[in-house]
Simulated assay, not measured.
Amino acid sequence: MSFRTALLASACTAIAAPAYADVTIYTTRQAELIQPVMDAFTAETGIAVNLNFMEEGMVERLKAEGARSPADLIMTVDIANLKQIVDEGLTQPVESDVLTAAIPETLRSPENLWFALTTRARVIYASKDRVADGEVTTYEDLASDKWDGRICSRSGVHNYNLALLSAVIDHVGEDGARAWAAAVRENLARKPEGNDRAQVRAIWAGECDIAVGNTYYMGQMLADEEQTEWANAVRIEFPTFENGGTHVNVSGVAMTTSAPNKDEAIQLMEFLVSPTAQSIYAESNYEYPVLEGAALSDIVASWGTFTPDTASLSDLAAHRPMALRIMEEVNFDG
């Protein structure tokens, strides 16, 4: 083969198999939780995904990098953190008929600046032996004297508990939320410590009778041989607000203002709400899909159904500073 023929063949090969740019994501979600869905995207499109996990400091990093940031997308596990990044002007709107058709209006920004990918309920883990069916009814009931010395909790200033308190604020106002947080603190069996799974272990060990936790942790414990015994010691109860439903939070995605690979990033965003991706989320993470009709995992379906609260996620995010102040004022972790 002549040099000219080889050169033409090489050019034709390059045209036939274009090299796609990678998509880079800054995420507060542990990489192993979302890697399966990213692998599925790469298998379908040939576009690689670079996951950069950062537990904190995402806003500061994006600001420092500015227009030079390699991040195309950001993903968070809490609406308040997602909304903070949006409010700092670090994201851009994404116009996509696929996203708006797949995601309910209440689970995305009116300006298309953020989109929920999955939801999870903040529920009660109740001892099967020491708590009767139906004994847990509302979030407000957690302040009742009947739970004195019977509640375990992770830190009050953790994002998940701040989101719940933000929902309390939305329903009963600042003064009511402060009284509620103080009463729940008085009902604690021990100083807040550990994560949601640690609270289930404490119930199993007899240290307390109920705890607040996210639904998906139950699935993770049942899948972990060392933690299955803890999980089997409790059942999930779906409390509601007295004038509302069960509190839910979201994992979500937004596109950065810099987004060097915008087209590929939109492809990924649209894939994340496809039936394929939503099913992977449901099966591997035990979360609730945002796509209507997407199947739940058998484990999640076994917990039963609930009615999500209708409080605006944007409003809950706006209440977060007040929720943090209340938790500090009542010395919840003290």
Results as ranks from 00 to 15, higher is better:
11 A>I: 13
13 T>F: 12
22 D>C: 00
25 I>C: 04
35 Q>D: 13
37 V>R: 06
38 M>I: 13
39 D>S: 15
43 A>L: 02
43 A>F: 03
46 G>A: 10
56 E>K: 12
62 L>G: 10
71 A>F: 06
77 V>F: 07
82 L>Y: 02
85 I>Y: 12
89 G>P: 00
90 L>R: 01
115 F>H: 04
116 A>N: 03
119 T>Y: 00
122 R>T: 15
122 R>G: 13
126 A>N: 04
127 S>F: 06
128 K>Q: 14
131 V>N: 02
136 V>L: 10
137 T>I: 04
138 T>W: 03
139 Y>L: 07
140 E>G: 11
149 G>K: 04
153 S>L: 11
154 R>N: 14
157 V>D: 14
162 L>A: 10
172 V>L: 10
174 E>Q: 00
174 E>P: 03
175 D>N: 11
184 V>R: 03
190 R>S: 14
202 A>N: 06
206 G>D: 00
210 I>Q: 08
217 Y>M: 10
224 D>R: 05
226 E>P: 01
229 E>C: 06
230 W>M: 04
230 W>E: 08
231 A>Q: 04
232 N>K: 14
232 N>T: 11
233 A>L: 05
234 V>K: 05
238 F>L: 01
243 N>C: 09
246 T>C: 07
247 H>E: 11
248 V>E: 10
252 G>S: 14
257 T>L: 12
258 S>H: 05
260 P>K: 02
261 N>D: 11
272 L>D: 02
273 V>G: 04
275 P>C: 11
283 E>M: 08
289 P>Y: 02
291 L>V: 11
293 G>P: 07
300 V>I: 13
300 V>T: 15
301 A>T: 07
304 G>F: 01
307 T>M: 09
308 P>R: 08
308 P>F: 06
308 P>W: 02
308 P>H: 01
310 T>W: 06
316 L>P: 10
317 A>Y: 08
317 A>Q: 00
319 H>L: 04
328 E>Q: 15
329 E>S: 14
331 N>R: 15
